[in-house]
Design a protein around this nucleic acid. Structure first.
Lengths: 241, 241
DNA sequence: ATGCAACATGCTGTATGCAGCATACTTGAT
DNA sequence: ATCAAGTATGCTGCATACAGCATGTTGCAT
């Protein structure tokens, strides 16, 4: 279960385009939040964390403003940045919204997407099947994000894609935690296959139905891993150990 | 038609809660973008605009980062902030996304909203009818934002509300411009009435249908005011004149 | 022992200074 | 006259310095 050690996925980025320091800092902080180095409820000390990332307070503060707008942290006046902690209700809302967006994006994709677009999603799915075959959980998980936002991507609607990815970014930590047991994983893989088949058949209703089922079961799975009232962070490292 | 002069709506804010300088700056810049003082494509000079707002470059830069995350401006590396210009396709995508979110939020609202919630929306609608009666265009327009995000608000889903408001914030400028002629306005008012009736009857399908129709017609209306390829800003002030 | 008040510390919020880069202008050559 | 190259200017990006505030601690009084 531990063929990978770090959650870091920066290596997968485009190799040519060098990002600005701001984007870099935002990305690294995002990673720290997702993989739990910054736990929900933690105060983010600009000086400390900035030193740790090798940037001064100014770009640090700017990155925190960006993350606040993304909904990953909260900026309390006079007290600085706090990693946002999601309640059970918050997570329910996020999944419900994700379901709506993904279903409708799926319908649009069935109506509009080119064969090449569909083939590209099929390719991602095939790679995920291979990763599932060797139980490479972390790499599977990484691609899982892609395939879900993939429907929004090939729907051709940039705003839907933006909304989906924004919400998914907040959920990443939680989905990471609630990745579930062997049989649940198998069921998820089967549903993915159903989705791709529906997409290839341009059957929007069928696709929406599977997506709905899939996300409903995600809610069940995630719910178990969620503490009663507070956030999404058990104290210990949940997966990458 | 010119009973109001400024787009400014800060007076409508909660009187007690004093906002931080950051939030204040963000809000003021947002207003400047919406009412056209900062036109799409304009470069935002940190020094100049900062002086104009009475803040130094640092909080200015932080505000720009927030606005960039909100999608109202773009941060070009090495060139600073540029007010984002939306293409016709961008606007179509935004309206399509808004339609999806608003329809499904409406369905949820019909299923879940309390009588008090529904009554509050009815109250907003009634006030809009009064404003329509005296043709108070700008004040009508302000409440129009509220009633549309209102469905998301009383759906009880905070994430849907967030998504709706985020997208609507970007659209504000365009909706402002494309407010349309007398008869189109009358049609819009009639559709609003239909929506409230459907909501009060808890008829989700009917509500979704009206919302769909309403936004489709918004697209038609807005499209005319939209230049072919570029942004959403005719040079002159379009409405408050 | 407990509560309150004054103080000390450390952090946030803002301003300013400096280096680097992009762009515009000027000057010269063809 | 036009184009190119070098130069100059002004802005961005980042670091640092300073002021104000929130919080934790200590000492004193009851």
């Amino acid at each position: 279960m531990t063929d990978e050690t770090s959650f870091d996925d920066r290596a997968a980025e485009s190799p040519i385009l060098r990002r600005s320091l701001h984007d870099e800092t935002v990305a690294r902080l995002r990673d720290m939040i997702i993989d739990g180095r910054l736990a929900p409820g933690d105060r983010v000390n600009e000086g400390d964390v900035g030193r740790r990332l090798g940037v001064s307070r100014t770009p640090m503060r700017e990155a925190l403003k960006t993350l606040a707008a993304e909904g990953l942290i909260e900026n309390v006046p006079g007290r600085g940045a706090v990693v946002r902690a999601f309640t059970r209700d918050d997570v329910f809302d996020m999944l419900e919204a994700l379901k709506i967006i993904e279903q409708e994006a799926g319908r649009l994709a069935c109506a509009r997407a080119s064969d090449a677009d569909i083939a590209s999603l099929r390719a991602v799915h095939d790679r995920m099947m291979q990763l599932y075959a060797v139980r490479s959980r972390l790499n599977y998980f990484k691609l899982n994000q892609d395939i879900h936002s993939g429907f929004a991507r090939i729907s051709g609607n940039a705003t839907l894609l933006w909304a989906h990815e924004s919400i998914q970014a907040r959920m990443k930590r939680i989905r990471f935690v609630g990745n579930g047991s062997e049989d649940k994983w198998a069921a998820a893989v089967a549903e993915h296959e159903e989705m791709i088949v529906a997409l290839e058949a341009h059957d929007g209703d069928a696709l929406a139905e599977v997506i709905g089922r899939h996300i409903d079961r995600t809610w069940v799975r995630v719910q178990d891993a969620l503490p009663e009232r507070a956030s999404a962070a058990p104290a210990e490292e949940p997966l990458a150990s």
